[in-house]
Amino acid sequence: MVQNLQNNEIQPKKLLLLAILAGRTMLKNGAETYRAEDTIERICKSRKGIQHADAFVTPTGIFASLEYNGEMITYFIRVKSSKIDLNIISLVNEFSRQFVNSNMSIDEGLKRLKHINKINNYKTITRSLFGSLACAFFSLLFGGTLMDFISSYMVSLIVLILINKLTEYKITFFLNKFIGAALASILSILSVRLGIGKNMDTIIIASIMSLVPGVAITNAMRDTISGDFLSGLSRTLEAIFSALAIAFGVGVVLNMYFKGVIR
């Protein structure tokens, strides 16, 4: 009982920290902002004595505050989203449901959250191998031949490995996609020159498919509908700039190719 009284001041702070960490983990791995807001509010309100809890999440930062015993506590965290890992979003979702519905202690929750953060569902090489397989089958959807299939597999594998390396060095997404698209076009031209592939168009289209901003479009729309116009707008902008980066990357190489710089 004495322990409980002493912990009275610390407990709500820890709870808010846990909630914010859960939200940040989600946001970092490419969740929608309304999902992060929802998770934070749910986790805060699940414990007794919290009169009021609110969260404001944008794709780049989290503000959250809660009221306990007439005292307001507010935290702010800056978020730099780096990668897309849907498995972690799903795991945090499950975790928050468990935390809300059970009597889990906050320390236990923090421990579990840290563990979730470290989970790697697939190795990087597995992701690259299957991602390029997806691109290769995409070339078949666009009416490519077997040789196109093989060359787009090789091209997109190289592109994905390079992109992963670049992401480790924290290069901005614009340059990342620009370099990826340019490399994809160069390698496609090369593979046609070497006689491996046949249709240059199909190979380039298939290889840039791994770079297109599908996640940004989906999240932008889902955020906009739930009324988070700020995040909706910023994610739309991300999608537009990703598309521009890809288009410029392809365009630069094609321009050089038609002018005879690359042979």
């Binding site: 849907l86 997806a134 089958f137």
Partner: peptide, 23 residues
């Protein structure tokens, strides 16, 4: 044929974005 190609292609993109194994 189109259906099978699209099926495998979507599964590949799913693994690229690291979705849970059971999904």
């Amino acid at each position: 044929k189109q259906m099978i190609f699209a099926f495998i292609s979507s599964m590949g993109f799913a693994i690229l974005y690291s979705i849970p194994k059971d999904s």
